[in-house]
Design a protein around this nucleic acid. Structure first.
Length: 497
DNA sequence: GCATGATCATGC
DNA sequence: GCATGATCATGC
């Protein structure tokens, strides 16, 4: 019997052995440059098959750590209580690092009872101590076996994080127990998400254990991508990478005990609602902010009410939560629709809906609406509401709106140049706001810039304000917007009157 | 009065 | 200079 090169009952020993991987590639492991095994070539191609999810993790498990990969609900290094997770990271254009994937922890059980609390759960037993092995997903490399392993560390969430994760778990478990797993969405929770797992096809849905036993998509517990990006930057790379800029995120939650009798969702909403009834002017004076009605004023106030000095909340970054201030006019209407980041035409038409930017954005992003209502010259705070796009709307109405935009671009946008008293207006045949209940598209640029294929230029902008259509025409950046009247309908009644 | 096209403001 | 959030302005 050969002995292992590490003590499988000791987390420290496992971590120490794992750290020898840093600076090596998966190919090095197969070649025995690090570790001691050399499997056959067939095995190498099997592990590196990009269609085999978790292949690189299995490689480390079987070749480097010398145990058989399993999909059991107990931890990989059972005796030490350590779960191994090999996971990719990437660099953004601005040089900052981000997690390449959400970290999938374990399947949500639909075939039997689910534990009501995190502490009692299988997922926590399995994942309270994780050996994180981060490799750089460098798509310029020919084989994923060439990816370098750059960071290795044991990880367990902090006490405040765990309090929020426990909240999240409870929320998911309660939905499952009430037989409503089909309504789960990753954006329902903060750090621990319920992500879809496996095919999204209708036929792959499974019957729920809890009545009324409706069919639901298979889902898994995961740490959200946004949470893992935080873990990567503020924990894994901390002290390893020295050039990273100083982050100035502030926590809203100062101590885990603040959540003893409430959820994090209730906690933040009540922090805002505490000030309901005050005008923007009164709030400005309360928080020592100049009252100047500039665009940032109401968002600034929202963060001040949450108890932080900057507009960078640590929890919101980790949870992929976006604060949106909504101002209601005296007639009860929102004047403006809500914008999102612009898209690139050529990239948009290459996307599949299920993996599209818009789909992923709404599936993963949660919103904190902070609602003000006009009263004379001021806006009065009505309160806050957490919201995310309902899943059934995302896959029906939003998808239909997205499809028709994509199809119009694919077919070739038709332009009409109209002369008016104030110059030319460029009209197009993209779907209009009234064509879809939820979304529409609008320009989202600094300046107008069109350059048609015949060389005609319209607008004061330049190419940085625009991007190219499939036929080469330059058209200003566009983005998706949520219709103001749809958002109005989503708001709690008490926020409107 | 609102939809649509156009543009502004701030932070990094 | 870009990413993101937000608002303006005109014609119908």
């Amino acid at each position: 019997m050969s002995s292992l090169p590490y003590d499988k009952s000791s987390p420290a020993s496992i971590e120490q052995y794992a750290k020898l991987l840093v600076g090596h590639t998966f190919q090095d492991v197969l070649n025995g440059v690090v570790g001691k095994c050399q499997p056959s070539q067939e095995k190498a191609s099997e592990y590196s098959n990009p269609n085999r999810k978790g292949g690189l993790g299995n490689l480390l498990e079987e070749v480097y750590f010398e145990y058989k990969a399993n999909s059991e609900s107990k931890a990989d290094f059972d005796e030490a209580g350590v779960e191994l997770k090999a996971t990719p990271y990437e660099y953004n254009k601005n040089g900052s690092a981000k997690a390449g994937e959400r970290l999938v922890l374990s399947m949500i059980n639909y075939s039997g009872e689910i534990e009501p609390t995190l502490e009692e759960s299988h997922v926590w037993q399995k994942c309270k101590l994780i050996l994180l092995i981060y490799y750089l997903r460098d798509k310029t490399l020919k084989s994923n076996l060439q990816y370098p392993i750059d960071f290795v560390t044991l990880f367990t969430p902090s006490e405040t994080d765990k309090a929020i994760i426990a909240n999240d778990y409870k929320y998911i478990a309660e939905k499952v127990m009430s037989g409503k797993a089909e309504t789960l969405s990753e954006a329902d929770t903060f750090y621990l998400g319920a992500c879809t797992k496996g095919s999204t096809a209708e036929k792959s849905k499974v019957k729920q254990f809890y009545p009324p036993h409706t069919l639901a998509k298979k889902r898994a517990f995961c740490y959200k991508n946004s949470y893992m990006t935080y873990v990567l930057n503020d924990y894994v790379m901390q002290g390893v990478i020295t050039y990273q800029q100083e982050e100035k995120y502030e926590p809203i939650l100062k101590d885990a005990s603040e959540l003893e009798d409430k959820t994090f969702a209730t906690f933040i909403v009540s922090k805002i609602n505490h000030y309901a009834g005050l005008t923007d002017k009164e709030l400005c004076s309360k928080f020592d902010r100049e009252y100047n009605n500039n665009k940032a004023q109401w968002t600034d106030l929202a963060y001040r009410m949450l108890g932080i000095k900057s507009n960078r909340a640590e929890e919101f970054r980790k949870a992929n939560l976006t604060v949106k201030v909504i101002r209601i006019e005296e007639n009860g209407k929102m004047r403006e629709s809500m914008s999102f980041p612009p898209f690139k035409y050529k990239e948009l038409i290459e996307e599949e809906w299920e993996n599209s930017n818009l789909h992923n954005y709404f599936e993963e992003t949660r919103f904190l609406f902070v609602v003000f209502k006009r009263s004379g010259n001021n806006y009065v705070l009505k309160g806050a509401q957490l919201w995310n796009m309902p899943l059934e709307k995302l896959d029906s109405t939003v998808k239909a709106g997205w499809d028709s935009v994509v199809n119009t671009i694919k077919a070739g946008i038709k332009f009409e140049i109209v002369e008016t008293a104030n110059g030319v207006v460029v009209k197009n045949n993209l779907p209009k706001k009234a064509d879809n209940e939820i979304i529409h598209v609008r320009p989202h640029a600094q300046k107008r810039y069109f350059k048609f294929t015949d060389g005609t230029v319209i607008g004061d902008g330049n190419e940085s304000d625009a991007n190219q259509l499939p036929d080469g025409t330059w058209m200003p950046h566009y983005s998706f917007w949520i219709n103001n009247d749809y958002i109005e309908k989503q708001l709690d009644k008490n926020l409107l009157d």
